[in-house]
Write a protein that binds this DNA or RNA. Sequence first.
DNA 1: CTGAAAGCGCTTACAG
DNA 2: CTGAAAGCGCTTACAG
Lengths: 343, 343
Amino acid sequence: MKRKKQSRVTLQQVAEHAGVSRATASLIVRNSPHISEATRKKVLESMRELGYVYDRVAANLRSQRSSTVGLIITDIANTFFSELLIGVHQTLEEEGYTVLLGTTFDSDTKQNHLLSTMLEHRVGGVILCPVSETSKETIDRINQLDIPIVLAVRELPGANCDYVSVDYKVGAEMAVSHLIQKGHRRIAFLGGRSESSTWKERAQGYYDALHQAGLEVDSSLVVDGPPTREGGVAAVQQVLNHPDPPTAIFCFSDLVAFGVMQELRNTGLIPGQDMAIVGFDNVPEAETVTPSLTTVSSFPRLIGKHAAGLLHERIANFDHEQQRVILQPELAIRNSSQQVVGK
Amino acid sequence: MKRKKQSRVTLQQVAEHAGVSRATASLIVRNSPHISEATRKKVLESMRELGYVYDRVAANLRSQRSSTVGLIITDIANTFFSELLIGVHQTLEEEGYTVLLGTTFDSDTKQNHLLSTMLEHRVGGVILCPVSETSKETIDRINQLDIPIVLAVRELPGANCDYVSVDYKVGAEMAVSHLIQKGHRRIAFLGGRSESSTWKERAQGYYDALHQAGLEVDSSLVVDGPPTREGGVAAVQQVLNHPDPPTAIFCFSDLVAFGVMQELRNTGLIPGQDMAIVGFDNVPEAETVTPSLTTVSSFPRLIGKHAAGLLHERIANFDHEQQRVILQPELAIRNSSQQVVGK
DNA sequence: CTGAAAGCGCTTACAG
DNA sequence: CTGAAAGCGCTTACAG
């Protein structure tokens, strides 16, 4: 059975069918109040009968508006980002936006490509979780087009945009101070890209906590790498071969922590008992893994909500002054860090 | 510093700047081969200088094409769906599509709303992971508009669409047969919405495996519920109060299994030792949880790839005959089911 | 409320 | 390759 591709029903056809002008029909789809109830009903009925579907794309083209927004993240397989996405979606869909999603997998090329595509699609704004080596030109390009952009999660030096994130430095400080309080003196910091602002801020918190306790930083206990399970596995291997190995590990993220715990088991060590572990993010899995993971809550869904809110404001008022929202993290203490060190 | 919203550079302006006609400029942005190298270079240079951004929306409107595709899933926080999303994205972005993402959280209202919005945005097609109680009207509506649609993960009775999924029945059979082989005679089936095709198929596999082993089905060991961690917690509570409790649990999904394991621990039972557990999906966490979870691999990323492939074909050739892709699952045997029952 | 006209930024088709 | 014209489906502005 061959089916002919029927063309879309237009507002013109609806108007004819209902016996009104196209202008009137247009007012009705846009919910104008200056229409008598009788006409409105008649036209809505015609739409239903003809199976009319509003063409938002044509409308946006004519009125120079946009009802889409781009969201670019680095890794959707990371629960942190799927939570952030939920926050963005919830807020933006309420406001009537549709979200174009792109995942960069931390590739700058991919990021540029995605941004171009989104701009070509006339997005009204972009929420960007930038890749580590994002160039300032990337942001400049968007600013020049006067497309509102909100950075989330990672800051870009010199970028002139709204920014929303969590205070990673304070989070790292909380985590490391907690370990120190449990008696640990040799604490490693594993995983994460050392180029990224998110890593640098955590590193700063890590240093600060050590200094406050009068401990020296041993840079051989700081090993960066991909912020993934595999990255955790690789990083912990390096540290375990250390002549004077650590007794506790502060991990860049929960994902890294899971890799670390897995690899510890592989080498016969029991995480939480032979080695204290603290993660970062507080993903749902952190609660259910064994031992349950002490970690820093970074509230990704809330980050998403705030980013969406800022973007919405910025779209409404482009010249609004630049805003920064920095959420305060919280330490969730669980079993992976409870053992007190007794020498 | 007030900035005036500058309007978009148009192809017309580019043409004028380069001293060619608008038609020629249009041919160049569309990579037509009938253009001399010199002209092409000149025009591309003008584009760069003026900061031209191709307006794909206007182009699509004129040419009656679409470069977007809708993807509707039920829960992005579920790794199964984020993996599926990755598969869809990878395939579709290669083909030049941009993905509009929507999450229904299993609400029919939300699903209808998302579909409407996507149709209004002129999507070229839709990949739908339908909510459990999707009405046939929902699909009819899309079919009437001649918008290609591919169903993924859940089948809808009577829906006249391409479909891609995993053979859940066979997967469930593998899981339950494995438990029977380990000596279990009382095996519960926990979690999942009993209205959904994905549940029914698993249930069928569960029944079949029991029958093949000459075991009777005890319907009090079958407890449905939300396909989430919380659902697992709730379901296992019911079964633990059973006068003749099971020795093994086949869970609707890994997520349910994690909830089950968590709750077992809460009640003082050791998962994998006091109670054998098998999950479904094989999410990354299944490997790292303790005990590591025996589970059925359902290859969500591959499902996504196939769904995207089918949609792409269907867009290219609307009258192509209806296709079904059913992937074969695999059992990943780990520690949560290794204990042999000795009475 | 209506009607006729113009225009958003592009593509298409056609005569040169 | 060019140029002028028409049109995708809508909104806008304006005279009635």
